[in-house]
Computed example of a mutant assay.
Amino acid sequence: MSSQNALDYFVQDDDSAGDLRGKLVDSIQRCLERRDAAYQTRWNRVWASALCQKYRRPESEDYWLWARAFFDAPIFDLQAIAALVQ
Rank of each mutant, 00 (worst) to 15 (best):
L32N: 04
P74F: 05
M1P: 05
D8G: 00
V46H: 02
A69E: 15
D19R: 15
W43L: 07
A80Q: 11
T41G: 05
Y39Q: 03
A50M: 01
L32T: 06
I28E: 04
S3E: 15
S16N: 13
S27M: 07
A73F: 02
V25Q: 07
E33L: 11
S2V: 10
D72C: 07
L7S: 11
F71N: 03
R30T: 06
E59F: 14
D72Y: 12
G18Q: 09
R21Q: 11
R56V: 00
P74S: 13
A67Q: 06
A82H: 08
Q29W: 06
V46Y: 01
R56N: 03
V85D: 08
E61M: 12
R30S: 06
Y9F: 14
D36F: 03
S49H: 08
L24A: 06
F10V: 04
R45W: 03
G18I: 11
Y9V: 11
L32F: 04
D15W: 05
I28R: 00
V85E: 09
Y55T: 00
D13A: 08
R35C: 06
L78N: 10
V85Q: 07
L20G: 02
D77N: 14
Q86R: 11
C52G: 07
V11K: 11
S49Y: 03
L78V: 04
W64E: 01
A48F: 00
F76M: 13
R56Q: 07
K23F: 02
C31R: 13
S16T: 09
C52E: 00
Q53L: 03
R68S: 14
A6P: 01
P74H: 12
L84G: 02
L84D: 00
K23E: 12
S2Y: 10
C52S: 07
W66N: 08
C31E: 13
A37W: 11
K23A: 09
F76G: 14
P74W: 11
F71Y: 15
A69T: 10
L51A: 10
Q79M: 15
Q40G: 00
V46K: 00
Y63F: 12
A73I: 01
Q86G: 15
A6Y: 06
P74M: 08
W64F: 10
L7T: 11
D77E: 10
R68D: 14
M1I: 07
C31Y: 06
C31Q: 14
D13W: 07
L78W: 04
I75Q: 00
W66H: 13
D14W: 02
Q29A: 07
S16R: 12
Y55G: 00
R42I: 01
M1W: 08
C52F: 00
A48L: 01
I81C: 06
L51Y: 06
V11M: 10
V11I: 07
L7G: 07
K54E: 05
D19T: 14
L24C: 07
N5G: 05
Q79D: 15
Y55W: 02
D77F: 09
L24E: 09
L65I: 12
E61N: 14
P74G: 10
A50I: 01
R45G: 01
F76T: 15
Y55K: 00
D77A: 03
A69Y: 09
Q4I: 06
